[in-house]
Design a protein around this nucleic acid. Structure first.
Ligand SMILES: [Mn+2]
Ligand SMILES: [Mn+2]
Ligand SMILES: [Zn+2]
Ligand SMILES: [Zn+2]
Lengths: 157, 157
DNA sequence: ACCATAGCGAAAACCATTGTCAACAAGTTT
DNA sequence: AAACTTGTTGACAATGGTTTTCGCTATGGT
């Protein structure tokens, strides 16, 4: 169950589909459970640009009548991040946020208002390749690049 | 004491010097205290590439015989960040880290091993200007750009 | 269907950070 | 220099997100 033995990220295309997910998990000795399904469903259902915290996800599931514990939420989020299905965002808030990680597209980045906390997303292929270069230069294998810009938005100034 | 009334960041050159710091603080109605001096001293004494948590700083001061409370550490760190003297880093760890912010030089960036947590710094002027462009495009005033690359280092793979 | 064990969840523990408030001290006025 | 005003401190309690514990449950292989 060590992470070192898990498959590399580029095998996870379409992994939000139940069958593919099941196979991916089982290959590594993990089981596909109702709870893991539900959590991925919530993340799939989230609108583009939405960033969900563990508590957000838990609350959404409780609201739709599911019975699920917080421990399961945290455990599952970590698992999905390790599998490369999710991106964990350090937006300098007091909690972490999660979003689907789509290996097909260029990772996007975040512009955050330090005053009101609003988040705007943007894309820039150059940034990712800069990260890749630096990782290579230092002998690292790349997992994720996060470019986070802090400022003050129009309304707040 | 509102942040909106504080001087803009480019006035803080050499602010680690006692006199300049005193003037800077007093202009805004703040006071220069023994504790604020000590905390800045610790950060000044830190080696290049060192990232200190609030607890690190507190412990260093206790070790050198100072008597200082944790509340003061946190309060002071926030103040110094607001004044533009410090950079608060969200390295996706469970705590925040601080380093001196030198407005004369290009902000540097971080490559982190997700396995062992080791951090390597690197510089790239292009990245900061990309952040500046995006902030401008969205009508934000820029405060800080943090480019954080996650991967697995050589020893860990 | 059976079994071995990965996974679940309620509750407690953990731990970085923040709030409280009486005592203190920096800077200003007399 | 002493008095005064008010920003600042620090012991302690509280907060809140995340992790751990551990007996029970459900998944997947046989
Ligand atoms: Mn996003
Ligand atoms: Mn650094
Ligand atoms: Zn704003
Ligand atoms: Zn490492």
């Amino acid at each position: 169950m060590s992470l070192a033995t898990m498959s590399s990220p580029h095998f996870v295309y379409g992994s939000h589909h139940p069958e593919v997910l099941k196979t991916l998990l089982n290959q590594e000795g993990f089981r596909i459970t109702q709870q893991r399904h539900k959590i991925l469903e919530v993340l799939n259902a989230a609108a583009e640009g939405d960033h969900l915290s563990a508590e957000d996800i838990h609350q959404k599931l409780l609201d739709q009548g599911e019975k699920i514990g917080v421990s399961t939420i945290y455990r599952t989020l970590h698992l999905l991040v390790d599998l490369g299905l999710l991106r964990e965002l350090a937006l300098s808030e007091e909690r972490k946020f999660y979003e689907l990680s789509n290996p097909m597209t260029v990772a996007h980045h975040h512009l955050i208002c330090s005053q009101c906390g609003s988040v705007k997303e943007f894309e820039d292929a150059a940034i990712v390749s800069l990260g890749q270069d630096e990782a290579l230069r230092q002998g690292f294998s790349l997992l994720d690049c996060q470019f986070t810009v802090y400022g003050v938005c129009e309304q707040c100034s």
